[in-house]
Design a protein around this nucleic acid. Sequence first.
DNA 1: GCAATAATGATAGTATTACTATTATTATTG
DNA 2: CAATAATAATAGTAATACTATCATTATTGC
Lengths: 224, 224
Amino acid sequence: MESLTSNLSIQISDRFFVKNPDSSEIGQRIIEWSIILIEEIGFEAFTFKKLAIQIGTTEATIYRYFESKHRLLLYLTCWYWSWMEYRLLFAITNVESAEERLNRSIGLLTEVIEEDSNFSYVNEVKLNNIVIAEASKSYLNKDVDKENKEGAYLNYKKLVQRISEIILEINPNYKYPHMLVSTVIEGAHLQRYFAEHLPGLTDTNSKEDSVAKFFKQMVFKSIE
Amino acid sequence: MESLTSNLSIQISDRFFVKNPDSSEIGQRIIEWSIILIEEIGFEAFTFKKLAIQIGTTEATIYRYFESKHRLLLYLTCWYWSWMEYRLLFAITNVESAEERLNRSIGLLTEVIEEDSNFSYVNEVKLNNIVIAEASKSYLNKDVDKENKEGAYLNYKKLVQRISEIILEINPNYKYPHMLVSTVIEGAHLQRYFAEHLPGLTDTNSKEDSVAKFFKQMVFKSIE
DNA sequence: GCAATAATGATAGTATTACTATTATTATTG
DNA sequence: CAATAATAATAGTAATACTATCATTATTGC
């Protein structure tokens, strides 16, 4: 994506942090390096102590920004879905055909992520890898209902809702738009993960990006 | 499913355990109660200590059966996929039409699970809930490549392979059979979880089981 | 029936984790 | 320049995921 002239920043709801990491240099380093570290060693092995050493601060300081590493993960995934929504808006505004809007939306959700230079201290490629491998852990736990009530998954739901509406524009009688969209999002993540680690569960072809093709075909055939 | 006269037992490869839990009463209680406990409190909060207290033994004894709680989870998911394969064979043998075999296979993977009285100390309904909420954690971690080499996911892959072959029987030109099947399996789990905890991501209808209908439609439209 | 062996129980110990708490020091702001 | 806020340094805690040791109890082979 082309770099924009103005400086952009994704605003994240204060439900995820104690002190806004966007408001200080040390906070920005927390975000920048947590993405690098979590992608490298995985969320289980990631600790605030390791992060503190990496950015030359102390555990106590990080705890003043995030009350737990789980909350930090929620912050990062929320950032990711907000970023996705912003990219979605750019991709589909002024496109008249609903089919083309849907085509672009599914593309956005299933194609390989590239870095976006508009957001300086976030590496979107690494963040995408984190979302692929770790985001499901943010809702696959016993706090899911409490956190859902707090609004932890609102951005994700909003994105699903938006694309569901395009589907209903194309076929108002299609009964499962939300199922279809959430299956595509989670499915695309999994297929990328399988391609890397469990190729027997997918159909990879190094020459072409079959993930996006598979899901586009699946969506358009399902709703016709 | 009807109860069979003979006593069945699912044989699990010895790569998952130190001592076969099927070989002793205490081992069987480990399996029985680990399923009950993990379903109730979640895999994160589950510990060998809690399990030991529950079944009136000690941590040390449980460690003599499983080298870690992660290995126990691999054992349980492996059991689940073996059980699924056994049910699949029952459901499709002697069915001539490939379409009908596929229809039954997808049904098996997406419909609500009912208890199977053939396997005394395993509660399949609870185990299904564990697979839905926890199984992805067994491969979404940094040991995935090592464990894959050890054969930890063979049963899962075998099931995907089997159903992929039915798809290719129906349409030999379909390019993504494995992708489609693994998307259905993981997608069905997720949709059941969403229906319970994040209904905004799905399309539930208490009157009918829309999960199975959605995925059947998706599969048959995708491959035609 | 009894010795040999295996399985289990009881108990202790360790490194790490995910925090909380306290106090001193340094930056920032009015 | 005083007041306030942010950060650093350090210590401490309960829980976790194990490992280790040794005594006790079952099981099996002869």
